[in-house]
Design a protein around this nucleic acid. Sequence first.
DNA 1: GTCTATAGTGAGATAGAC
DNA 2: GTCTATCTCACTATAGAC
Lengths: 212, 212
Amino acid sequence: MVERHEPTSREKILEVAEALFARSGFAGVGLRELADRSGLGKSSLFHHFRSKGHLYLEVLRTVLERIQERLAPVIRSQSGPAEKLPAWVEALIDALAEHPNSARLLLRALFEDDDFPEDLEPQAQEVEGIVMSILGTYQAIVQQGIDLEIFQPVSVTDATQTMIGATVYHFASGEIGEAVTGGPIFAAAAIQRRRREVVHFLIGGLTADPTH
Amino acid sequence: MVERHEPTSREKILEVAEALFARSGFAGVGLRELADRSGLGKSSLFHHFRSKGHLYLEVLRTVLERIQERLAPVIRSQSGPAEKLPAWVEALIDALAEHPNSARLLLRALFEDDDFPEDLEPQAQEVEGIVMSILGTYQAIVQQGIDLEIFQPVSVTDATQTMIGATVYHFASGEIGEAVTGGPIFAAAAIQRRRREVVHFLIGGLTADPTH
DNA sequence: GTCTATAGTGAGATAGAC
DNA sequence: GTCTATCTCACTATAGAC
């Protein structure tokens, strides 16, 4: 059972900030809009967060940790790569689908080389560390599958980049993604289909004979 | 032979703006930095472009048209889907690799639902139209392959989303991408390998028996 | 913990001389 | 076609009352 409670101001700010940063990126968000939508004055934000940068990195960390939690049981499981890889990908997709802001924020964390002031280098490196740690668990599964000759000897790093693109981009793709797919991205049926298709593609790529 | 000439101010601005918008997005770029790097005063920018938004959309259009030109001969060719699809993907990758800013700008155009003032709605819609037109040519190839029973009856729209992720994300992924792959992304050898791996994955996904 | 007031900076954009 | 000067506005952040 989930405990219900009125969100604290801090929680409310983080919730609103997550949506705004996902939509517009770090530079595209003004603290005025954030304050208004949080039901607070602009200055009150600084009681909860030292700066806009600190807030942004805290939002990123929260999103990444949510994803990590989803993946943890899969990583802990003792099954072989043939079962573990689909389970990993499906868990990631579920995590991205559960919270529509996650994919966009994750995508921004992945491809935007933000240059933060040095007083929050520690937070920035923590975020990058979580990203690399998550990706490391995927690479380990692919590598294990290759070692066991269950998968073809593909480039592990390219397989990882392809997996990121296939999962994260799709759920970040917004209006254009919906124009391409011809329907909502976050509807339950669409998520189900995407899970099937991505797993099919990735397994197909990992197992197809290179001499087609 | 390419004609060499000193770039006009307009060309110089577009060139600098392309790099800056790719790095920091629309909101993250200031006209002062753009002017300085172009060797002009801030006000001079407004002689060439009506507003920052007009400039941004012109940059996007230029990048997209460059990609379109690369794809045109492939689309015109009369070969079947089994040859045309790899050729299409390789042409896209070549286009993205040729100009390191292209992938990031294209990615931004794809997933950022920018909300521009209405006086440049026409330009925004033109950009979106080019994107959809490009994607349409890929979907047509996939659909044709399915109709000819060369490809498995996968979801065409999901195949398209996966292709975008596998191509565009990789070349947009910057520092983290280089950390994942363990080397430069735009080195000739890395590009070659990426071409091979992506084509292998996509063909694998399109031809693998769904009952693995 | 929230507010008003404001500092201090830089943004995008315009006017008009040259 | 480029410049200086300037306008107006929004921004992040701080000070200090309540």
